[in-house]
Write a protein that binds this DNA or RNA. Structure first.
Lengths: 340, 340
DNA sequence: TTGTAGGCGTTATCAC
DNA sequence: GTGATAACGCCTACAA
């Protein structure tokens, strides 16, 4: 009676062994699907497991096996802007699918404050996970250093500047930026600028570099509006700045679709028609691209594959202790729609 | 030399104790900030910790303490649509902040397939976490049942239908829907319909119920377009359906801002002006609301607080073993802009 | 095929 | 204040 109200002690292998009339060793063997167990024993044990309601204590298992079967995915967005990042969800889903196929558990950790950063470091060192995927780390990220110290198998999504020894997967931001800028220029624009963002990460800097390359001689640094975040608001502000600097601007490469959408609003309010007066292209091919008016020409980023590939590389390290290659570049695709 | 290439064994309390010339017990005491440790011992131990590069093995600690200091947040979106859900990110951040303040680690688990569901169940039972927050569970969710079986402290975000014993936090979807519908009708609309979605969850059903209540005698079930997801595409399709059924429709309550945005597109293509010809209101006050043309009148959902409150309730259970109240309703607010 | 027992790294309860 | 030492629950040689 009182059993049902007080918190019952959870059954252990001991209880199962006693119930089935065998030793703990044998129970452990059937639990792990090992051979050399008689059918009779197996049956008795399975019945006992069901009867006593046994579930394995993974903390104990981890301790004994020195591994956890889990991989962390760390999202580091100290400014809480990741809510609007269209890629992170897809990266997560891709990583989850790849790990799931290998029967690993993905656990996502978010770092929002300095305090989070410390706590997560402790968590990573605590045997909770066998490896880690780091998303959207910034230049000065303490986590990547901590991971290196812990010798925890890890891979970054995006190319790390300060941790050259960390394996990574990413896209060729520079090449993609160059391609779409060239295409934009090809529509006969003469004065083309850029709304850049995220210049504290490699992705942001590389997109700017690609733009500069594509512009060649025509590059004009005053026509680069530098914003902090990849947001709609940044697009609104950045476009206003560009119009102020050069009212005759007729082409804009926005560092993200959200920025492009914001720029569209500014242009609309300024009475400029897109693509007639001004051609604009974005980056990501997120949901912003299709919903914008007009629909955005942009670069498709294989976010899901990014996550999946990162997961595979972590698993390779976990299993073999090392990695065949040290980085992977996934290919992008220019998607041409109506905005330029 | 070879030390640096082969994987070094991680230092344990043993090593620290030896290095500092004290016993493990004393080391453990300083590690846990307990009193009754001499300054000399503390200093020696701290130096030793730094010297041997000790980091605590949490698996062992969990085993001994029978707890983990981590709380799971389970996102269950089998259709991968959560990428576009504007609330989940905020819920996550809110929960993370609340747990962080109590020095708990939030770990997010996503369930995307049947296989994920099984694996996560095992994870939850394995001593990795002390409690769980369940987001966006659906009616037939096996996870909530598993959690009940495990006697794991848990709380749902959103009111559970099938697990009445599970504590939860949510908003008054029905009341909020009623309020905004009444306000919409107050703008002098005669033929008002609804684009409903997510009718397999309480939130979706409650919004429809609130709409019905507000309409009273004027409720017309043929003017309810039922969609599966809370997406832009659903809005496009739902609005088309409503226009087909009643070309004279002059008011629409969309079950989410994304749906409302989609509806706006259909209306624009159909040559209907908003709010002149048709008034439209949404739900969530997500980024869709402000970026829509015209900006949406909508219901603000306190997503961050939802996550924070859920976290607090889980911690209360973890610490006291029980809960003072069994549910919490957070208040919403009608935000009136230009779309109606 | 099965049982035995030592070890995984910490914590906690004792004596001292 | 500090040092032994028995848990914690599981895995895994090794022996039988």
């Amino acid at each position: 009676m009182s059993e049902s109200t007080t918190r019952l002690k959870r059954a252990t292998i001991f209880d199962v062994a006693a119930e089935a009339g065998v030793s703990r060793g044998t129970v452990s063997r059937v639990l792990n699907g090992e051979p050399y167990v008689s059918a009779a024993a197996r049956e008795a044990i399975e019945a006992a497991i069901a009867k006593v309601g046994y579930v394995r204590n993974t903390a104990a298992r981890n301790l004994a096996k020195q591994s956890s079967g889990a991989i962390a995915l760390i999202v580091h967005e100290p400014d809480s802007v990741f809510i609007d990042d269209p890629n992170i969800g897809a990266i997560l889903l891709g990583a989850n699918a790849a790990l799931s196929a290998a029967d690993y558990q993905l656990v996502s950790l978010i770092i929002d404050t300095e305090r989070d950063s410390h706590r997560v470091t402790g968590y990573l060192g605590g045997g909770f996970v066998d490896g880690a995927i780091i998303v959207s780390a910034r230049e000065d990220d303490p986590i990547s250093q901590a991971i290196a110290d812990l010798r925890l198998p890890a891979v970054m999504v995006g190319r790390p500047d300060n941790q050259p020894q960390l394996p990574w997967v990413g896209i060729d931001n520079r090449g993609a930026a160059r391609q779409i800028t060239e295409r934009l220029r090809g529509t006969g624009r003469n004065r083309v600028g850029m709304i850049a963002a995220g210049l504290d990460r490699d992705s942001g800097r590389d997109r700017l570099a690609g733009f500069r390359e594509a512009m060649g001689e025509a590059f004009d640094d005053t026509l680069v509006a530098r914003q902090r975040f990849y947001t709609y608001a940044a697009g609104v502000a950045g476009m206003a700045e560009l119009l102020r600097i050069d009212p005759d601007i007729d082409g804009v490469f926005a560092a993200s679709d959200a920025i492009a959408a914001g720029a569209l609003e500014t242009l609309r309010n300024a009475g400029r028609a897109v693509p007639r007066d001004v051609g604009i292209v974005g980056f990501d091919d997120s949901s912003w691209a299709l919903r914008a008016q007009p629909a955005l020409s942009t670069v498709r980023q294989p976010a899901g594959q990014l996550g999946a590939r990162a997961a595979e590389l972590v698993l390779e390290q976990v299993r073999t202790g090392s990695l065949a290659s040290n980085g992977a570049l996934l290919s992008t695709e220019v998607v041409w729609r109506d905005s330029a």
